[in-house]
Design a protein around this nucleic acid. Structure first.
Lengths: 201, 201
DNA sequence: AATATATAGTGAAATAAATCACAATATAGA
DNA sequence: TCTATATTGTGATTTATTTCACTATATATT
C-alpha cells in the first residue's frame, strides 16, 4: 500500500477524532463535517486501509482506530534524539503527544556545557561531543533538530556523519545532506503564513 | 494573485535560502537543488510574483528576497495571543523566528493562577479570564492554541466567543468552531509520520 | 564582433488529488 | 415481512500540481 503524504496527514486527523470518539460507530459524513472536507474522500481513505463500513451505520470506531494505528505504525517504537536543548527542544522533550504515536525521545544534546547533565522529563542532556558515539551505540536513526539557524548546517553535517537517517528540522534553514539522509522541514512560519494569507472561505 | 498553499510553502523555503545567500544572484537550478525539487517549478513560482531573471545569470537575490517578503506579508504586523503557557506555549513565546515574518505575540494566557503575572520573553502571562476583554480591546485576531487536548475545545469556544478569527491549533484535537473562525491544525505528529513512513527516495 | 552556452520562460503533457454523482445495500422502522 | 432511507463504495469527471521539452535570449568567451 502506497499512501501519499496527504492521505497520511488526513489519517492522523481521523485518528485524533477517534481518540475522543465515544459512540460505537462513526460515519464518513461525521468525520468530514469535523474536518470540513468531502465525505467521499474520507470513505476512499478509509477504504485504502481495507476497512469496511456498514450501510446506514457507518464504520465501527474501535476497529477503524486500530486499523489506522497499524497503518501509521503507532506503537512501533521510533527512537530519536533532540539536538538543541533550548526552549523548543525542551518543549518537545516534554511534549506528551509523541509517545502515543511511538516516537520515543531518548536524550537531548546541546553545545552549552552548563546544560549537560540536566534531566528534562526523564531524558538526559548530553554534550554535543557525545552525539556520534551515542547515535552509533544506540542505533538511533532520527534526530529532531532544534538549534538556531546559524548552527543548523554544521550540526546537520555532524548528524549525517554520525549515521542519523532522518532529520526533523525545526530550524528555519535549508539543510544540505547526503542522499541517504532525509530531511523534513517543519516549516512553522510557512504553515502560519498559508493560514493567514489564504483565508478564502 | 491567488497563491495556493503549496506555492506559499515553497516561497517560505525560497525565502529561507535567500536569508543565508551571499552571492548577488541565484538561479532556479540552485534553489531546486537545495530543496530537491524541479527547477521549472521554481521558475514558475518566481514568475508568479512578477520577478524577472536574467539569462545565464539567474535572479538578483536581493530583489527576489524583497519580492517574496512583500508577497508573504513579511513585516506586516500580525498580532497574536498564545493561549496555554505550558512548555510549548513558552517555547513559542521565546521562538525568535516569528518576529521577522511579522508575527508579533503580545501576551500569553493560562488557567493556572500561579503563572499569571509572569513575564516570558517580555510578554506577560494573564489569567484566562482576561482573554475576552483583552482580545476585544486590542483587536487581536490570532490565537496560538497550546493547551492540552482535554481543554482545547472549551478554550476554542472561548476564543470564538471573544472574537478571535484564526486559531493556530497545536493541540492534538479537532476543534469545532463557528464558520467565521479558521483553524489551522499544526499536526506535528502527522508531519512526523509522513516523513518516517514515506521514505521512498 | 561573433559565437557558444547557460539560463529564464512557458505551453503541453503527465500525474495526482479532489469532487461529483449515483448504484448497491444493509438497516431501522412501519 | 416489507419499505424507505441513510450510508457505503466507486467509476467518472474535474481540478490542481508537477514535470517535460523546448524556445528565446542575455551573457560570457573567443
Amino acid at each position: 500500500m502506497n499512501l501519499s503524504d496527504k492521505v497520511i496527514n488526513r489519517l492522523t486527523l481521523y485518528y485524533s477524532i477517534l481518540l475522543g470518539w465515544r459512540a460505537e460507530n462513526i460515519t464518513s459524513a461525521q468525520i468530514a463535517a469535523l474536518l470540513r472536507i468531502d465525505a467521499s474522500q474520507v470513505r476512499k481513505d478509509i477504504k485504502m486501509l481495507d476497512n469496511v463500513g456498514v450501510c446506514k451505520v457507518g464504520y465501527p470506531a474501535a476497529a477503524l482506530k486500530k486499523s489506522i494505528e497499524q497503518t501509521l505504525g503507532v506503537g512501533k517504537a521510533k527512537e530519536a534524539f533532540i539536538v538543541g536543548a533550548g526552549n523548543l527542544g525542551t518543549a518537545l522533550a516534554k511534549y506528551d503527544n509523541f509517545a502515543p504515536y511511538g516516537l520515543n525521545v531518548l536524550a537531548l544534546f546541546d553545545n552549552d556545557p552548563l546544560k549537560a547533565g540536566r534531566i528534562i522529563n526523564g531524558k538526559e542532556v548530553f554534550d554535543i561531543s557525545r552525539l556520534s558515539d551515542l547515535t552509533r551505540r544506540l542505533k538511533v536513526q532520527i534526530a529532531i533538530l532544534t538549534v538556531p539557524r546559524e548552527f543548523a548546517q554544521s550540526v546537520a553535517d555532524l548528524l549525517a556523519a554520525s549515521g542519523i537517517k532522518y532529520i526533523w528540522n525545526f530550524s528555519p534553514s535549508i539543510l544540505q545532506v547526503p542522499d541517504d539522509v532525509r530531511v523534513w522541514n517543519e516549516n512553522l512560519v510557512g504553515n502560519f503564513l498559508q493560514f493567514t494569507i489564504n483565508h478564502k472561505d
